[in-house]
Design a protein around this nucleic acid. Sequence first.
DNA 1: GTCTATAACGGGATAGAC
DNA 2: GTCTATCCCGTTATAGAC
Lengths: 199, 199
Amino acid sequence: MYDPWVTTAEKLIEAAQDLLWERGYVGTSPKAIQRRSGAGQGSMYHHFDGKPDLARTAIRRSAEQMRATAEADLGGEGGALERVRAYLLRERSVLRGCRLGGLAQDPDIVADPELRRPLEETFDWLRGRLAEVLEEGRASGELAPALDARGTAAAIVAVVQGGYVLARSAADPAPFGQAVEGLLALLRTLSTAPGGARP
Amino acid sequence: MYDPWVTTAEKLIEAAQDLLWERGYVGTSPKAIQRRSGAGQGSMYHHFDGKPDLARTAIRRSAEQMRATAEADLGGEGGALERVRAYLLRERSVLRGCRLGGLAQDPDIVADPELRRPLEETFDWLRGRLAEVLEEGRASGELAPALDARGTAAAIVAVVQGGYVLARSAADPAPFGQAVEGLLALLRTLSTAPGGARP
DNA sequence: GTCTATAACGGGATAGAC
DNA sequence: GTCTATCCCGTTATAGAC
């Protein structure tokens, strides 16, 4: 378990990532980050300028990880609908919510461009990547010619983010699954394949 | 502007509603509520047991208002798709987010059943009400027979909640509109009417 | 009902020793 | 690089006067 290559700065970043996920930005104190990382007061202020600086680093890190996870599904094998399906049905810790999306609720995040930008960039990328996949499906004849790739992509990302909200409100992952199933049923109507014609 | 019928308790509740919307639960202090309402320290603790008690009252109030607003669109005139469309395209202060959905991110809200329950009940009601409307459309022949009313309803609510997340992340209402348009395009494929057959 | 005073505590950061 | 001490401020309340 002990890894000498995990530096103090690294431990601080990871602790900050976890706490930002669990408690948001306002709800995360420097003291709590120090406790969880095992680093002392002085260490934190040696490696980072303060709470916003450490948070910025942690959020950028989470954004990178989120892109990599999404790309693993969206860049995989299979048709467009199959990859979108893989993305939507991936195992998630639904009740924890989205590491990035949850921060969008925090006014201090939205107010500081340095903290907000990673969210904006990641969701822009995700919508763009989904639109690419859908567009590929349209070009190959798998999906209906009249498909609105960018709008559909935005709806897909929104269903995931909204699904988290519904699940946390209910303290139950079920509404997330129901929203995703409802979306998948709608997406099947875009398919030109025999079974997917209409509901 | 001065209304003698707006009691101190009422002013406290309204100030709490506003602040919970803007800053969330952790981000809202009793002192800030007192400042905004114009009530003193003593008044607040005379009318309410403390922050959780006042927040509970404020959240219940917001939940009532949210239901009434939704019902105004969903219980209106016209076909099923027309009413869903009215609900989705209603004017919203997108960048402020949802008064209730935003609170679902707060760990202290989710941890306290008294604070979380109004969220759960309201979203349950909303999904149920949308499912009813869609079911009516299916029964009347307006919508496709194979429609999954409950799943579709969950997806609709999720797109709205997720749309808020995307818009706040971008500090721009546009992604909300894009997600809604994408969803509406998908919903049109459910229509049995001439123009709505397929994308 | 409303006011002011007070208190215990945590947040966020700085200072300087080691 | 890391540690402890210290600081100022805001949070969340309680107490008691008016």
